[in-house]
Amino acid sequence: MLKVRDLVVTYGDFTAVKGISFEVSGGEIFGLLGPNGAGKSSTLKSIMGLVDYRGNIELMGKKIGVEERNLIGYVPEEFMLIDVLTPMEFFEFIASLRKIKNQDRLIRLIYAFGLEKYVNKPIASLSMGTKQKVAIVAALMHEPPLLILDEPLNGLDAKSSRILKELMKRHVEKGGAVVFSTHIMEIAEKLCDRIAVINKGEVVAEGSMEELRRKVKTEGTLEDIFLKLTGEDEYIRGVIDAISR
């Protein structure tokens, strides 16, 4: 469904993404895992056309233009909400832009995430978690085939977190695809069919949990695999020793 080839993103002299390539098929959850500043968000922003990039990005065999944006639901890492509107007004605005005919799904999502209490309050007054729910509902309302979720579980309570994870699973069961970034290993381990570990703008490993385990020759958790791949396990041991002394 999504093909990313030789993606390069630069900010002035700094290269955030150094030639990343990956493919995501329908029916799979693809996780981008990496430390802060690894280039996960820049990769996802490139797919959405929010940053300038070099390389090739195709969705269902086409370059992502204005029309193709309706095939994607995007939850950004930083809120792209309109603070002076209420969630209700914001949903009406987004639904109008997406030309949504049937509002039943949208209403069900509002109730599913417990937003009915907040729909008439200004977005500026909402907590971080509630804002995140608004962003999620706005991304899911048009039932797009591809979901791009940048740290979507940030700030969510347990109930909403579970709902979103279940929705992601059902989405792929129906043939959709999910690309999501996270730094929470347990979530990536439980949820993802395939994972790309990104470090310093490069994919250092890609595959299912089993494939990654084979690659680093460990039976440990994703956290162990990740730290080994990014070379941070040695560093952590050194730091802990230094603090203990």
Binding site: M88, E92, S96, K99, I100, L106, I107
Partner: peptide, 27 residues
């Protein structure tokens, strides 16, 4: 800014969805 904490759950959830052009103008 102190917002009222009173809950304001609408009795019936109805969204006024329109065309993109009108949506942007309204916003």
């Amino acid at each position: 800014i102190s917002y009222e904490e009173k809950e304001n759950v609408p009795e019936k959830m109805v969204l006024r969805i329109t065309t993109p052009l009108r949506g942007i103008v309204k916003k």
